[in-house]
Design a protein around this nucleic acid. Structure first.
Lengths: 181, 181
DNA sequence: ATCAAATTTCAGAAAATACTGAAAATTCGG
DNA sequence: CCGAATTTTCAGTATTTTCTGAAATTTGAT
């Protein structure tokens, strides 16, 4: 590993826990991401000084996040891995997986909680707040869904506009004066 | 705790680790969030069966995330806590803190990595990929910044539009034919 | 200033998570 | 099919994180 790659890999290891993956998984991903060619598990284990089995588990985890892709090299039985390099594609994948893992379970818990008949004033207040949380999460979840379908270029355009989008909305309001909200 | 509140609190405890906070912190937040009145540390410790000191640390953590606010009740020396109930405000706070904790350190690591002179073809490729990642993170970071400044109503409007925003962008292109990208 | 109430700190215990090595299972060329 | 190469599983160990209780500190009413 060159010092440049080492610094990148080390950072991903350290940030791993903040991002909800562990050190090994973070480092494996970083290494694959910057590598000019696909890597096999043995090379990864060797480079990062982790056991072969640890690397195997890490690769499974990264595959479940769809952050690395399995490749085969002609005339080689071993499994090689590379990572998408298009940042927008990576962002989309991450957003989708996070929604699935971090938002959907909460949404379904909230849905059933909101079906209950409150048994006290305390419950009534609690449900009211859960409703607010539910509605926002649902809104964001649907928004992610929509955004998922936009092509990278449109997305980038939207982001670059930033707050100016507000102006645009006001403008639209004028163009279609009958439309509410 | 009523069964309704209990289910909510338990869920936040379980999800905590996925969200980058621990079980205790998740449960304390959930309890404060649905409570009709501010709670003091002793009540929380009692309700959740955690030690007073654990609750103290959890509250510090929640304050550092700006998810709970310190209150004082007249004639009572104890510190009470409540949580903002407006879902949009919570979302904003979370987005801002996450950017600060999860994106900024990476951005600054990438910035210095990109200043290095690549010492090999391998480094050159690595830097190229880091550049793609850096640019996207920076774009998103600035976008968050912009979004931060929009009022809740505009934000909600934007989200509800979802993918239809694309149409709007095309339209704008027609309205201002000189504008590039 | 005093002092009891309240909060925080922190060292060590408990629990959870990550990691390894050996053994089992799978894969595929012959 | 056979068997070597490769990957996966998993029980046990190591490490990290969380949690507690006791002691120290801070707070504010008197």
């Amino acid at each position: 590993m060159t010092p440049l790659v080492h610094a990148f890999v080390a950072h991903f290891g350290e940030m791993g826990s903040r991002w909800g993956i562990n050190r090994t998984v973070g480092q494996i991903y970083a290494l694959i991401f910057v590598s000019p060619r696909p890597l096999c598990a043995d090379e990864i284990a060797e480079t990062l000084s982790y056991s072969r089995s640890n690397v195997s588990m890490g690769l499974k985890e990264l595959q479940s996040w769809r952050l690395v892709k399995l490749r085969h090299m002609p005339g080689d039985r071993r499994e090689y891995f590379d990572a998408p390099t298009d940042a927008w594609e990576i962002f989309r994948t991450l957003a989708e997986e996070r929604r699935r893992r971090e938002m959907e379970p909460t949404l379904s818990m909230l849905r059933s909680a909101l079906l209950e008949t409150p048994s006290s004033e305390e419950d009534r207040v609690a449900q009211e707040r859960m409703k607010g949380m539910h509605d926002l999460i649902e809104l964001m979840s649907n928004w992610f869904d929509d955004v998922q379908r936009l092509d990278a270029q449109t997305l980038a355009k939207l982001m670059r506009m930033g707050a100016r989008v507000q102006k645009l909305l006001e403008l639209t309001g004028q163009l279609k004066p009958g439309t509410k909200e």
